[in-house]
Simulated scan of single mutants.
Amino acid sequence: MTGQLLFSASLISPEVQAALPPGYKVRPLASDDYERGFLDTLAVLTEIGDISKAQFLERFNYLKQHNHEYFTIVILSPDDRVVGAGTIFVERKFIRNTGLVGHIEDIAVNKNQQGKKLGLRVIQTLKYIGANRGCYKVILDCSEKNVPFYEKCGFTRKEVEMAWYCNEPPKAKL
């Protein structure tokens, strides 16, 4: 690897690394992961758009400047391709004595790599980072069909998620 890492690799759990299949590696996102298929891996989640290398680097550099808040990790296959990814964002609160909350986002595993427990390893890595950054809790939103997976990862169902999409016109109240 020749690219810059998003954050220090010392935040990666050695136990998770050891639990990966032989030849696989977990590490922080790198500035040259554009060429390793990072965006292709994220495409299993939603529409990515036509992101250029320059746009990727602009976003990477922003995240790197805020690497006390943004922690994106990748799992590499033995052929050095990104096959798994996820992010934990650390939010600073006023509550809980100015506590920290980790928000897990964008968990993705390439379709041809599923069944190898890579998603579990992504979640374990992000939980480890959250705990080591001092978060008092780590939370995530998921679809109903993914609840059993996240329960296996140690999460419990709590409360209700609500969403409002900014690109929709506001609905008038009657």
Rank of each mutant, 00 (worst) to 15 (best):
Y62K: 08
V16E: 05
D106C: 10
L29F: 09
F155G: 00
N110C: 13
L63D: 02
A18S: 12
E69M: 06
A108E: 09
K158Q: 13
V147E: 04
V82C: 09
N167M: 12
W164A: 11
K111W: 09
V83D: 11
L100A: 11
A131R: 02
G102P: 08
I139P: 03
Q4K: 14
N132W: 01
T156K: 02
Q4N: 14
K152N: 11
K25S: 04
E151Y: 05
G3M: 06
L140C: 01
G154Y: 00
K117E: 14
A54T: 10
N67Q: 04
V74L: 07
L174H: 07
A18D: 09
K53Q: 12
R59C: 05
V44R: 08
R81Q: 15
Y62T: 00
G84L: 00
T156L: 08
G3R: 02
K93D: 07
S143W: 00
K111T: 15
A43L: 08
K53M: 03
L120Q: 15
L118F: 12
P148V: 09
T46D: 15
Q114H: 11
S8A: 08
R96N: 15
S13T: 03
F155Q: 06
S52C: 02
R59H: 02
I107E: 08
E161G: 04
P148D: 07
T125H: 05
T2W: 01
K137G: 07
T98D: 13
I95W: 09
L63I: 02
A30V: 02
T2K: 07
I88H: 15
K25W: 02
V82E: 08
V74S: 10
R121E: 12
Y136A: 05
N61F: 08
Q114D: 10
Q113T: 10
N146H: 04
D50K: 13
E58R: 06
P28K: 00
I95S: 09
T41E: 10
R92L: 10
L45S: 04
L29C: 06
S52M: 06
Q17V: 08
S52F: 06
F56G: 05
D106P: 00
S13W: 03
L76T: 09
G115P: 14
M1Y: 10
G49K: 13
K158H: 13
G99K: 12
N97A: 14
G37N: 03
R121T: 00
G134H: 11
A163Y: 03
R121C: 10
Y70W: 09
C135A: 08
V44I: 11
V26E: 07
K116F: 13
L57Y: 00
S31Q: 06
E58I: 01
I48Y: 04
L63F: 02
Y34G: 03
F71K: 01
K93L: 09
G99F: 06
K116H: 15
G84E: 11
A85Y: 00
L42V: 02
I104T: 15
V138C: 04
K116D: 10
G3P: 02
K117H: 13
H103E: 06
Q4D: 02
